[in-house]
Simulated scan of single mutants.
Amino acid sequence: MNTIQHSVRLGVRRGWLEARQMMTNREDLFNTFLYPAIFVIVMFFMRGAKLPGTEFSLGAATVPSVLGASIVFSGMLGMAGVLAVEREDGTLLRAKATPNGMIGYLVGKVVTVSMSTVIGMLLVLIPSLILFDGIAPGGLTSWLGLLWVLVLGLLATMPIGAIFGSLTSNARSIGLIMLPTLGIGAISGIFYPITALPEWLQYLGQVFPMYWLGLGMRSALLPDSTVIIEIGQSWRPWETLGVLSVWAVIGLTLAPVVLRRMARRESGSSVAARREKAMQRIG
């Protein structure tokens, strides 16, 4: 086994251990369960409303959109937040000092963030299957559709998150990433039909992966009768595959370059300077 394979194996093990620690830490557990619980409660109270132009429950129709949004927020912001925090506390510097340590570190973070994303989605999906009728009407086909959208969605969002995390100067800068992400969510039609927006906003929303993740999840989990609310009254699976693939290629191409440059700038003095600034803010 060569050194890179060994680093990858260590990264997978590290990611698994971090995910296990997250599920045994009281604060992490609270954060993990809080937002899915809020979404499920809100969707439950929406169950009596109807999706415009259909007899399908608005609460049930919102489930796949929430799942698509969770991939963006967990995959992109989760990765960005982890890199920003561990860059500031010196974890990245220690990884850099180890042979092939950055490879193992990044593999570990991919595993941790992916598992966190899947757990969050299951916390929404499992109660929704009990509370709502009509979700995943295609059986195995629906679940396979959800799987490929999930995998491609993580590939499209986590590298972008790694880039943002590398470019931020400290963990508190993550808020500057969250605000535009929320803005993109507002124009992506993730929680309501994008066709209700002005046409120019529809085109703008389709540039970003959040719209396509929501569309992909809806195409997998909703009946065909609900497609009338979509652009062109079509699920557009090939367009979904194409746009998410483009974002994945862009992220996977740029992320290694940005991460290498960030790692080269890391030093003991830079970590010490960031810690000193943090202590000054606390003081």
Rank of each mutant, 00 (worst) to 15 (best):
I250E: 03
I282F: 12
W143C: 10
I187H: 06
I231L: 15
A248G: 07
N31F: 14
N25M: 14
A84D: 02
N170H: 05
I250C: 03
P237G: 13
V40K: 00
I38M: 11
I103E: 14
K96N: 00
G268N: 14
L131Y: 01
S166P: 09
I187V: 13
A80H: 00
I119S: 13
L254E: 06
T117R: 08
K50E: 14
G232T: 00
E55H: 14
I119G: 14
L83P: 14
M22V: 08
G165C: 05
W238Q: 10
P193L: 01
G90L: 15
M121F: 03
S74A: 13
R20F: 07
E27W: 13
L51Q: 09
E27Y: 10
G189S: 02
T157C: 15
E55W: 02
L221C: 04
T226N: 06
Q21H: 12
D28Y: 13
I130D: 07
L58R: 03
R94C: 11
F39C: 05
L167C: 04
G183S: 04
V111P: 08
K50G: 03
L146R: 01
A60Y: 11
N31M: 15
A255Y: 01
M22E: 12
A60C: 15
M217R: 05
G183C: 03
G68F: 15
G104C: 03
I228P: 12
S188Q: 06
L150T: 12
L77T: 05
P159S: 00
L144P: 03
P127T: 02
W212L: 04
L51K: 03
S173R: 12
T3W: 04
W247G: 06
T253N: 09
L129C: 06
S225P: 11
L83E: 11
F56S: 10
L34I: 07
P209F: 09
L123I: 07
G81K: 05
I177D: 04
L106N: 14
S188M: 01
V118K: 11
F39I: 07
T24S: 14
R236Q: 15
F30Y: 12
T195P: 00
T117P: 12
D89K: 10
V227L: 11
S225K: 08
Q21F: 12
R281P: 00
A273K: 00
G59T: 09
E266M: 09
G104Q: 03
T195W: 01
V63G: 06
S169W: 09
I190E: 08
T3M: 13
P237Q: 08
L176K: 05
P52S: 08
L17H: 06
V149G: 13
L131A: 10
K109N: 15
G175N: 07
V107Q: 03
S269F: 13
A162M: 15
V258Q: 04
D89N: 12
I190V: 10
A60S: 13
T24A: 09
S70G: 00
G214D: 00
M217K: 01
V82I: 14
T24Y: 11
I190N: 09
W143Y: 15
R261L: 12
S65C: 08
Y192T: 08
E276Y: 06
L123P: 08
V246W: 01
G232N: 04
S70T: 14
I163F: 00
L221T: 02
R94D: 10
E266K: 12
Y105W: 05
D224C: 04
G185N: 05
G214P: 02
V72G: 09
V249F: 07
G15H: 07
G138N: 03
